[in-house]
Computed example of a mutant assay.
Amino acid sequence: MRLVLLGPPGAGKGTQAKRLAERHQVPHLSTGDILRFEVKAATELGRQVESKMSAGELIDDDIMSSVVANRLAQPDTMNGFILDGYPRTIRQAIALEEALRSQSLTAVVELMVDEEELFARIEARAKEAGTAGEDARADDTSAILRKRLVAFGRETRALSAFYESCGLLIKVDGQASAEEIAATIADHLVEALVRQRSAMPRKGE
């Protein structure tokens, strides 16, 4: 299972990615988590991206592609992965194809959520962190979300069309319950796997 999850900030990609990773026994690769770890650890990469992340800016394609390629080279991705937060641009999608070499994606799932719901979710997430005595994520503010949505509309929506033209895109209502979303994704993935297997060349052909 080699899967990419697309959707705007707050769409629930992380929640569904964790469910899928557990179900298919493959790693959940969240570029946001990877970058936040680097920032917290004060690594060279973390210092490079910290200010951009806090401002809600997208990280350079080359940096992100290098981070993902290095992670995909690890042994635990041999049987597949769930990618959350990458690719964000067509250039990154092409870099992902190069990193996968002879392998191909099973599908690309896009969670569709309207902006009003996204703002409500971000505010709720920040409030929950405060109630739990934890620091809210630096990018969990309405101002930062608005900025990120502009970037999403400018770059990532083109990626959706790109994957649709490749026959990989699955659009799912991201405003349903987490359980309903998971069930819908599971049904679509069964169909995607059947199509992928039927397209594979048979021995002797």
Score class of each variant (00 low, 15 high):
residue 55 A to D: 08
residue 43 T to R: 12
residue 123 E to S: 14
residue 43 T to P: 12
residue 37 F to Q: 05
residue 194 V to F: 04
residue 32 G to F: 02
residue 10 G to M: 07
residue 90 I to C: 09
residue 92 Q to A: 09
residue 50 E to C: 02
residue 36 R to E: 06
residue 63 I to C: 14
residue 92 Q to L: 08
residue 35 L to Y: 06
residue 144 I to L: 13
residue 69 A to E: 13
residue 171 K to V: 02
residue 114 D to H: 14
residue 18 K to S: 07
residue 76 D to G: 11
residue 116 E to W: 03
residue 174 G to Q: 04
residue 160 S to H: 06
residue 14 G to C: 02
residue 114 D to Y: 09
residue 129 A to L: 12
residue 123 E to Q: 14
residue 163 Y to K: 03
residue 11 A to E: 07
residue 79 N to G: 08
residue 87 P to N: 10
residue 189 L to W: 01
residue 152 F to I: 11
residue 167 G to I: 08
residue 6 L to H: 11
residue 176 A to H: 04
residue 89 T to C: 03
residue 80 G to N: 08
residue 78 M to N: 13
residue 174 G to R: 07
residue 128 E to M: 08
residue 7 G to F: 05
residue 22 E to H: 06
residue 7 G to N: 05
residue 138 A to L: 06
residue 51 S to P: 05
residue 42 A to C: 09
residue 95 A to K: 15
residue 29 L to K: 06
residue 99 A to K: 08
residue 131 T to C: 04
residue 127 K to M: 10
residue 102 S to W: 06
residue 78 M to S: 15
residue 58 L to A: 14
residue 139 D to Y: 04
residue 17 A to L: 02
residue 125 R to N: 05
residue 56 G to N: 04
residue 149 L to W: 03
residue 81 F to W: 04
residue 195 R to S: 13
residue 93 A to P: 05
residue 65 S to N: 12
residue 24 H to S: 03
residue 6 L to C: 12
residue 202 R to I: 01
residue 173 D to W: 12
residue 130 G to S: 04
residue 126 A to G: 14
residue 22 E to L: 07
residue 104 S to A: 12
residue 16 Q to A: 09
residue 113 V to Y: 09
residue 201 P to S: 14
residue 5 L to N: 08
residue 80 G to K: 07
residue 121 R to P: 04
residue 136 A to W: 00
residue 59 I to E: 04
residue 186 A to I: 00
residue 102 S to C: 06
residue 204 G to V: 02
residue 106 T to H: 01
residue 49 V to F: 05
residue 37 F to G: 04
residue 15 T to Q: 00
residue 97 E to S: 12
residue 163 Y to G: 06
residue 112 M to F: 07
residue 165 S to P: 07
residue 199 A to T: 02
residue 133 G to K: 12
residue 58 L to D: 05
residue 184 T to P: 06
residue 44 E to I: 01
residue 152 F to S: 06
residue 30 S to R: 10
residue 178 A to R: 05
residue 121 R to C: 07
residue 5 L to E: 11
residue 125 R to H: 01
residue 28 H to P: 00
residue 109 V to Q: 01
residue 78 M to Q: 15
residue 31 T to K: 01
residue 60 D to M: 09
residue 133 G to F: 00
residue 191 E to V: 01
residue 59 I to T: 09
residue 36 R to N: 02
residue 177 S to Q: 04
residue 199 A to Q: 13
residue 79 N to P: 07
residue 51 S to Y: 00
residue 35 L to H: 11
residue 179 E to K: 02
residue 190 V to G: 00
residue 93 A to S: 13
residue 205 E to K: 03
residue 111 L to D: 03
residue 178 A to V: 13
residue 15 T to G: 00
residue 87 P to I: 09
residue 2 R to G: 08
residue 173 D to C: 03
residue 14 G to P: 03
residue 159 L to R: 13
residue 193 L to K: 13
residue 188 H to N: 00
residue 57 E to K: 15
